[in-house]
Amino acid sequence: MKNILEVKNLNKKYDDFALKNITFDLPKGMIMGFIGENGAGKTTTIKAILNIIKKDSGEIKIFGLDSKRDEGKIKEDIGVVLDDMFYPEILTPNDINNSMKYIYKNWDEKMFNSYLKDFSLNPKQQIKKFSKGMRKKLEIATALAHHPKLLILDEPTSGLDPIARSEIIDIFQDFIQDEECSILLSSHITTDLERIADYITFINDGEIVLSKTCDELLDKYGIVKCREKEFKDINKEDYVKYKKDRYGYEVLVENKRDFKKRYDVEVIDKITLDDLMLLMIKGVK
């Protein structure tokens, strides 16, 4: 089994939104950044993977097993952090520990308490008395303490300050040292993803726009900044999207080197994931 997660032609229709043929693979030992604007379908995709919602059609395989048929077995090895979903806030980390040790066969009480200590979380304090950042840390500690093989994280670093984010990212990197483990990480904080993600999957309006290695994206893609006259000389098939503002044109190209060979441009800017998202969503062809 090469891929820890395989999503094939996943469809889910609501009245005002639909996931359309979502397809991507997450190989073992990799971190996949799942990006897209609000309402693009990231959380819906994650919910479908976890069977929180029912898919209309498509195939989801986790650890090579069918996500529905082998649900019980699969979920022993998945750790999750979901946006705004957790233990009721009148409970304490101690209560969570007392509950989780009977829920997961591999629950590691020692590991959980060690995370609580590292994150300076009082085990006897009610969740509602924690700050948003502390609560997120508790959710992450809870997701990690049963030694999962796949982490599915929906905005796990939102609300955290840069130092806390850095700590968490280090933990994710440690987690991935075991090459049997993978992370699917949805986040708006693209700088974090540029730091740790091996793959980027970009979803827009319920459709996967691209799913590539992060290196390939950041190395190959580029932005050409030019004026109208130069832009008109560029063939439509040689760029992905463009955006016009009062200073000129920003043109997203898929292969910087090829583009440079064909056109007389001096500089092609390196791309960031933010640029990519912005041009893909707001740009036109």
Partner: peptide, 18 residues
């Protein structure tokens, strides 16, 4: 009420036989 406020059932459905 507490369960619903914190979307517990949704979170619990990510557990084995949740």
């Amino acid at each position: 009420s507490y369960d619903e406020f914190n979307k517990w059932e949704s979170y619990a459905s990510t557990f084995p036989n949740g």
